[in-house]
């Protein structure tokens, strides 16, 4: 771990100023990812600004009928929040499918969507990684790439985004509110994370002087028809090989709106609007689900160890849609241990 100085920010303004004044400064809140990466010398800030004192912890109603999630509300407080559980159960389930109870108690919403990839090579400074060290190469391309991307990857990086929460936020079409020296702006969730292209060291479009203040959930929560399905190598406490956040609006047996976001397959939460459009106005049949799944995976490309994700992804999409259709509104367990659990 690098040597660094530490301050506690008391206002948003001073936090932003402080960050802008030191080139290698970082914000720290939950610390669950940053501290970890500092210990393996992947991150090496020389100055840490503790933002946990900032008043960004609240979860409040928005005028448009949506909900505002404070950037510093913890993942646990968010998932268990009465309004989130009631109106956005998809989000609650996705959050609770990730990490552990301890980590969810520490991790904040802002930090969750900023967490970095779990690519083995990114984490191991003995290896080549363009994300960690631009220009050094991508060891995963010709290495052990079982957990890597099948969609939207580039010859420079095939890492995937590890968040579960972000997959639900993508499906819900959340907006990310940020503040920087130039003032405030709102980033639609689909524009927040980016594909690696030739600059894989950039995970997202947040500018160095910017800080996430909140995440807005639109009014539409898909509480009636949704599913978060996570497939992984053990029943809990593991990152997704493939995950699917599905939300449907139904009129009888007809789908009037569909949202499908995938985790574990790309550098960002993966949406495919053409596939979603394929389902709009159609009845909820296996046949139609299959068409949508095929469309989503149409351009998928497997590497030596991860081609299985293409078929797995298709099946996961179909199952998630099926679960979303069939789900009852009875209160259920918060957890998705395996695919076999009822939603």
């Amino acid at each position: 771990m690098n040597s660094f100085t530490y301050t506690r920010a008391t206002t948003l303004e001073t936090a932003v100023q402080d960050k802008a004044s030191a080139e290698l400064a970082k914000f720290i809140a939950g610390g669950t990812n940053l501290t970890d990466l500092m210990k393996v010398n992947v991150e090496g800030p020389n100055h840490l600004i503790d933002i946990r004192q900032l008043a960004l912890k609240d979860i409040t109603d928005n005028a448009d009928g949506g909900l505002r999630l404070g950037a510093l509300a913890t993942n646990a407080d968010t998932a268990y929040h009465e309004q989130v559980a009631k109106r956005y159960p998809l989000l609650a389930k996705a959050i609770l499918a990730g990490a552990s109870a301890q980590l969810r108690n520490m991790a904040t919403n802002g930090g969750n969507i900023l967490q970095r990839t779990r690519c083995y090579y990114f984490y191991d400074t003995a290896t080549a990684c363009n994300k960690r060290e631009p220009g050094s190469g991508c060891a995963a391309l010709s290495g052990f790439n079982r957990i890597h991307a099948i969609l939207g990857a580039s010859e420079h990086c095939i890492a995937v985004h590890p968040s579960d929460m972000a997959i639900a936020l993508a499906a819900l079409e959340a907006n990310v509110n940020v503040t920087g020296q130039q003032g405030n702006r709102t980033i639609p969730f689909s524009d927040f994370h980016r594909l690696p292209g030739d600059a894989p060291h950039l995970d997202n479009t947040l500018q160095p002087d910017e800080i996430i203040t909140s995440i807005d959930l639109p009014a539409k929560g898909f509480a009636q028809h949704h599913a978060y399905l996570k497939l992984r190598d053990r029943e809990s406490y593991a990152f997704a090989l493939v995950s699917v956040a599905a939300g449907l609006e139904m009129d009888g047996d007809t789908i009037t709106e569909a949202r499908i976001a995938l985790g574990g397959v790309a550098h960002k939460p993966w949406r495919n609007r053409e596939a979603e459009d394929l389902l709009t106005g159609k009845s909820a049949t296996e046949e139609n689900f299959k068409l949508a799944a095929a469309e989503i995976m149409r351009e998928a490309k497997g590497y030596e160890h991860n081609s299985f994700k293409i078929e797995l992804g298709k099946r996961a999409i179909m199952r998630a849609l099926e679960q979303a259709v069939k789900m009852s509104n009875k209160p259920d367990s918060h957890f998705h241990r395996t695919s076999t659990e009822p939603v």
């Binding site: 690098n2 040597s3 660094f4 100085t5 530490y6 290698l24 393996v40 010398n41 992947v42 991150e43 090496g44 020389n46 191991d124 400074t125 003995a126 960690r132 060290e133």
Partner: peptide, 19 residues
Amino acid sequence: MQNQAAFEISALQPALPPQ
């Protein structure tokens, strides 16, 4: 420690954080 640091150490002036 596992490995050398990924970031450029020399630029950081090896120094100790204040106690």
